[in-house]
Amino acid sequence: MEVAVCVKRVPQVGGRIVVTPDGQDVDTRMSGFAISPHEECAVEEAVQITERLGGTVSVLTLGPAEAADQLRDALALGAHRAVLLEDGGREWGPAGTAAAIVAEVRRRAAEGPGCDLLLLGNEAADTGDYQVGVRVAHGLGWPCATGIKHLEITGDGARARREYRGREETFEFGLPAVITVKEGINLPRYPSLPGRLRAKRAAIEQYQPQWQPEGLRKRALRVPDQPRQQATVLGTGADAVPALVRLLEELGVLK
């Protein structure tokens, strides 16, 4: 089973999120970077699949040279090879990103064993475009399921489940396929020390895909207005309970 996973390097925002003075980016001077959360689970899922069925996990990112850090994080979790598609310092939209992934999957298939399963996160933490996986599937002509929180590989097919509005939706289709996953599909492991050492020494393949303009063009980013400011303190400890009960009555939430 050849599994490829697409990951994205995103800022690790903590207590608040700050926009650069020109309004074009998130200010990352004070933040680290990490793999976007859904994709961290995609890496774990891919590693678990190859642990069960054999095969290799390729991890793929489109980003700056520094995104090699996130590829090494994925290698430390058990991925076998890493590919960096260099973004050339430009901001890539979903159509261009999908085209670059499609080209890489095709290039790989022409050289050796092709990909049986391509995993992505349901949406990137930062841009939240909710479409790269679907566009990749169309580019490759493969079936696609999104928002998946339970995945079984069944011989030459996949059975993928998600919860939607309190019900369970199950999708079954043949491989190769594109599946986008959500956090909760698994609990990602912590990297082992040997894994970290292996990742540190691993070679990373690098390619320069062709950027393309997009139909959705950013003008500026801004932080939305805060409807709430500082909380009114009702009291301290159990002594505050009568005031809390009165408040719940006023809010009309007591039956």
């Binding site: 939209g93 679907v134 928002g147």
Partner: peptide, 22 residues
């Protein structure tokens, strides 16, 4: 929603048009 985002992403791919989410 999971449904709406997914269907419009497919429509974006079928028509070759951009899609603005949320």
């Amino acid at each position: 929603t999971d449904c709406g985002s997914e269907v419009l992403a497919h429509l974006g791919a079928l028509t070759g048009q951009p899609m603005a989410a949320n």
